[in-house]
């Protein structure tokens, strides 16, 4: 049975869920990843700040929500 996976909009990374993809995404510090966030109205700084100063997975969750809509779904 094929599983739905998500492809990072900026690189070749494929993740089984958007939360995992968000983790990958915020681990990248290059311009390309950062700029894509801007086009979606998100701030890289804001997401990271949430993730490392507030308890919970707030940064990942905010990004995962957007990725759910925006990331290409890949069947594997």
């Amino acid at each position: 049975m094929a599983n739905i996976n998500y492809r990072c909009p900026c690189c070749r990374k494929i993740s089984p869920d958007t939360h995992d993809l968000a983790r990958h995404y915020l681990g990248q510090t290059d311009k390309k990843h950062k700029d894509w966030l801007k086009t979606k109205g998100l701030s890289y700084a804001q997401l990271i700040t949430w993730q490392v100063t507030e308890f919970g997975n707030k940064g990942y969750e905010a990004l995962a929500k957007v990725l759910e809509k925006e990331a290409t779904k890949v069947e594997i």
Partner: peptide, 12 residues
């Protein structure tokens, strides 16, 4: 120049 937001490395 090539490192945005001065983020050196993140870890989870």
């Amino acid at each position: 120049d090539d490192i945005s937001n001065n983020i050196n490395i993140t870890r989870h």
